[in-house]
Design a binder for these strands. Structure first.
Length: 299
DNA sequence: CTATCGGTCT
DNA sequence: AGACCGATAG
């Protein structure tokens, strides 16, 4: 009787939800000849920043993070993600929806302000929106941050489980996506534990200069990260509905099914994603943020 | 070092 | 027009 009516379709869009620990930042130039231009930055859990798809791709490939697909990162600025760096959300008071102060609104540029990541006034879920707004302070590698990341990760996982529950079976594909994230998380943990962290551009450059030759992360793989996984493990067990591998995984059962390490040929990795998405509600992946705007004309 | 802008290439 | 990378300023 379980219909696959995925009505609560606000699942995690492959483009919107990126691997755990990753942060996407979109900045708009406010001055200069190129004012108005949009720049997108991707910050990896290790604290490395990428400003271009190419760089990120290289990093993912060289870093051995084959679990992460460059396709998951949306570099294309939709001219709507203009998320002006609102001076970091101070822990002061959380302005719960409602009006903002009418006075002092001298923002000549696109008054667009909020419009942060997808945050549709839908059902629950998405509560992580406010979570990922902490990006600030420049430094992105403090214990505090890690904490946030953890929370986020957990949330993601929860979402995954939820999906399984809703669909029951036939979600294998979707699950796959979640699994990917999960696997990625594992890697994340590993790297997070003992990563150069502050590789800096030097590392990037080095990587780039040395297309191949050895995996810099091959040696890092001895300590067990179960400590961190512990809290999340139970969650997964909650619903043993569909889970084949990863169950009897002892230490290194991370046998990623697809290891597309091939480079240069980037044309079918996209299809993969598309194929994953069910045909429900076409590609409504775009964050439909409160569209009823032009319908409610004041007059 | 980080953040932003400039300018070029596709 | 969009993306990428470089360079400079704070």
């Amino acid at each position: 009787m379980n219909h696959q009516s995925l009505k609560e379709g606000d699942i995690l869009c492959p483009s919107s939800a990126l691997p755990p620990g990753w942060i996407r930042e979109v900045r708009q130039r406010k001055a200069g000849k190129t004012a108005g231009k949009l720049d997108v930055y991707f910050t990896s859990p290790e604290g490395q920043r990428f400003r271009s798809r190419a760089s990120l791709r290289t990093f993912l490939l060289e870093s051995g993070s084959g679990n992460l697909d460059i396709s998951l990162f949306e570099f294309t600025t939709s001219k709507d993600d203009v998320v002006t760096p609102s001076q970091a959300p101070p822990p002061k008071v959380k302005q719960r929806r409602g009006k903002k102060k009418p006075s002092e609104g001298q923002q000549e540029e696109t008054e667009n302000e909020t419009a942060i990541l997808e945050a549709p006034p839908n059902k629950s879920k998405q509560a992580s929106s406010s979570l990922r707004s902490d990006t600030k302070s420049g430094k992105v590698r403090t214990a505090d941050d890690t904490n946030h990341i953890d929370a986020d990760t957990k949330l993601q996982k929860t979402a995954c489980v939820l999906e399984v529950n809703v669909n029951g079976d036939k979600t294998t594909e979707t699950l796959n996506g979640c699994l990917q994230a999960l696997t990625a998380e594992k890697v994340d943990n590993v790297q997070l534990q003992k990563s150069p962290q502050r590789g800096g551009q030097l590392r990037e450059k080095l990587l780039r200069l040395a297309p191949l030759s050895n995996q810099p992360n091959t040696s890092i793989l001895q300590e067990d990260k179960k400590a961190d996984l512990k809290p999340s493990a139970p969650i997964l067990n909650v619903e043993p509905a569909a889970e084949s591998e990863k169950k009897g995984d002892e230490s290194k059962g991370d046998n990623t099914p697809n290891s597309d390490l091939e480079t240069g040929d980037d044309s079918r990795q996209d299809a993969e994603e598309h194929a994953l998405l069910p045909d429900t509600t076409d590609g409504s992946c775009t964050p439909v943020r409160e569209s009823q705007n032009s319908k409610n004309e004041p007059h």
